[in-house]
Nucleic acid binder design. Sequence first.
DNA 1: GCTCCCATGTAATCTGTTACATGATTCC
DNA 2: GGAATCATGTAACAGATTACATGGGAGC
Lengths: 182, 182
Amino acid sequence: MKERSRTKFTILGMLSHSPASGYEISKRIETSTNYFWAESEGQIYPALAQCVKDGLATCKEEKANKGQRLRKIYTITAKGQKTLKDWLRKEPQNTLFRNELLLKLFFGANINDSDNLHHLTNHQKKLENELATYEKIKERLLQQAKKSSHLKYWLLTLDYGSKITKAELAWCKESLKLFNRE
Amino acid sequence: MKERSRTKFTILGMLSHSPASGYEISKRIETSTNYFWAESEGQIYPALAQCVKDGLATCKEEKANKGQRLRKIYTITAKGQKTLKDWLRKEPQNTLFRNELLLKLFFGANINDSDNLHHLTNHQKKLENELATYEKIKERLLQQAKKSSHLKYWLLTLDYGSKITKAELAWCKESLKLFNRE
DNA sequence: GCTCCCATGTAATCTGTTACATGATTCC
DNA sequence: GGAATCATGTAACAGATTACATGGGAGC
């Protein structure tokens, strides 16, 4: 029943890279796992507090630089490391995949194909932008994290993103042909 | 704020194919849109009642065959058709995609690669089963729904499933190589 | 002074799952 | 008689988003 939320583990994972504030964790998620795992700030802050309560992380108020305001910097504890590892070893659960575009196309016979076509063209544009983003992130990673022990794993998930996006693009183009032919 | 749920539209969509009972809608979803759009019975029955209240569908108690128990058969109304069409024409929203496997791999440096490898091998098996299921559904569709005006749209979404699954499989195999090499 | 970004948090609300309750019919 | 499936629903709870509240510092 309880404890189905994986916010805690996402946080611990981010802290396993290096200590960070809630705000920074939120930004890291936005610029890394966001395309396959998103978390909102409304979840992160309470979960962080819970991690400290459970002894999975410690909190220290610090100033990043002189003259800057206080930030709460969280560090993962040994217990947190163990909790994270145990979870990582467990079989991943299938998770929600909900695609509204597909749902609309599934019922597409109810509207004009020009409308369906329109959805597809828009989607194609989005996909092209996504693909470009993945390329940029890859470049950034190869420069900034060249020696990180995490690089290999980051590239793996990034590669998933670009491979799947390319396949989606191929599907998109083929589907567009289908509608234009008629 | 409100009305972010798309259960209502999923139901209307299913009713646009043909009248059905709540139970049947649930089964249809399981055997068609489930891989990109799932709904649970706990949502379907209340949403159906709401549809009747809003005049989007009518309800009639019927016996499917002589001697069978009563079922509530729902039929979409003109207002329901319009509601559905309006929604179908609106720009699809990006929806939740959450992949726990990727999340675990992203933090994979924390555990042994044999564990990561294990996750990938399991995933590969699942994908192969999925692909086989898509093929079966496709065959079934081509036989049973040969003349349906919806066939084209069903095949479209099905094709998405198999194309994406194939791309995932390719990614899986490449990733496995990455881990085995070391 | 104003705006933007950094930073932390809470509350309201919505959405969705799970478990439970109930009972009929069909097939073995 | 018992199990499986058909069939309809409710209640409790878990999960997540959104909006709001608050305030400091940086740059214009």
